[in-house]
């Protein structure tokens, strides 16, 4: 296959598959994006995972365990898609552990209260789904297929989060106040999950031309705000944005400008929380090494025994 054939497939909105010839930059962009996506899933297990042991009912405990487990699974689907491009999962995990690859900065925020679990499901997973649904049609086959599986599973994540917020909003005054605090904490970080404004997003044009990306950051952000504001009203909670107003002419909500300086700081991944996220991963990996070695050693012994027998 050649550049011309690759271009023809992209133009025809066909899929690129693992063994196909592809431009180096296309491969690199995909490895970086899929790896970052996978890292985000497994780092994302931590802020919510902390609440599994503290969940306030057995039903919530079961739901949250299943959700955090799904996130491990989504990480695995995505690492698998990245591996089809010729990198090893072990290598990608090393890059996460030594901070040469990033994960979504949304997971550098804390979850001090139970309502944060609800807000993450409702807002963060909601924003993630808005980002991810178009990726199901990504030009790279294995990434698109992983995303189809993930989006199917993830719709329960957003619903359970919204249900937590709804139960809290209809609960005691303390519970409702807890829900409002969580919305205050997670609203702007969720808005920023769509990335910098289009005017400031250098990679968007190329990724759209390659069919890796289907909508711009600002398009997706608007779509998210339009969908979420009525849900907040239904909860009886106030969205912490004084500039938020329905624009009849545009048929969309106008909303305020996020604090992009804060975003830049969070993306850098410096500070106590990012250090904790990475060190938790690093320790699990390091402390698991003797276990992984044991499994490999046993498998080799078994193979030898079979050869002798």
């Amino acid at each position: 296959m050649s550049q011309a054939e690759f271009d023809a497939l992209i133009d025809a909105d066909e899929r690129i598959e693992p063994d196909d010839w592809m431009p180096d930059d296309y491969r690199k962009t995909l490895v970086r994006q899929i790896a970052q996506h996978a890292h985000s899933e497994i780092i994302g297990m931590q802020p919510e995972g902390e609440w599994i042991t503290r969940a306030p009912s057995l039903h919530r405990k079961a739901i949250l365990t299943a959700k955090v487990q799904d996130e491990a699974g989504h990480g695995m689907y995505l690492y698998g898609a990245a591996e089809s491009l010729g990198v090893d999962r072990a290598e990608l995990l090393d890059r996460l552990h030594n901070k040469t690859q990033k994960y979504s900065s949304i997971f550098n925020y804390e979850t001090p209260e139970w309502a944060d679990v609800g807000a993450i499901g409702w807002l963060v997973d909601g924003a993630a789904i808005a980002n991810q649904v178009p990726l199901c049609r990504c030009s790279y086959g294995p990434y698109g297929r992983a995303m189809v599986r993930i989006c199917k599973e993830e719709s329960f994540h957003q619903r359970q989060g919204f249900q937590i917020m709804l139960t809290l909003s209809e609960g005691t005054p303390e519970q409702k106040a807890m829900a409002q605090r969580a919305l205050n904490r997670w609203w702007w970080p969720s808005i920023m999950m769509f990335g910098p404004p289009d005017t400031d997003s250098p990679n968007t044009t190329r990724s759209m031309a390659w069919g890796i990306k289907r909508y711009t950051n600002d398009e997706l952000r608007q779509q998210f705000v339009d969908a979420t504001v009525p849900q907040a009203e239904l909860l009886g909670l106030a969205v912490p944005d004084p500039d938020l107003v329905w624009n009849e002419e545009r048929g969309h909500y106008d909303f305020g400008e996020p604090d992009w300086d804060e975003f830049a700081t969070m993306v850098k991944g410096e500070g106590e929380i990012p250090d904790l996220r990475i060190s938790t991963r690093r320790n699990a990996h390091a402390e698991g090494e003797w276990v992984r070695e044991a499994a490999v050693a046993y498998a080799e012994k078994q193979q030898q025994r079979e050869r002798v027998a």
């Binding site: 599994i52 057995l58 487990q69 990480g75």
Partner: peptide, 29 residues
């Protein structure tokens, strides 16, 4: 077993321990 989540020796094992934890939780309920 749920305490193992995010600390397991490999991602496959995070999945396995969570599954067992969920089965036991179901029995308990």
């Amino acid at each position: 077993l749920a305490e193992w989540l995010t600390h397991a020796p490999e991602l496959e094992e995070d999945m396995a321990l969570a599954n067992i934890s969920l089965d036991l939780l179901g029995q308990a309920r």
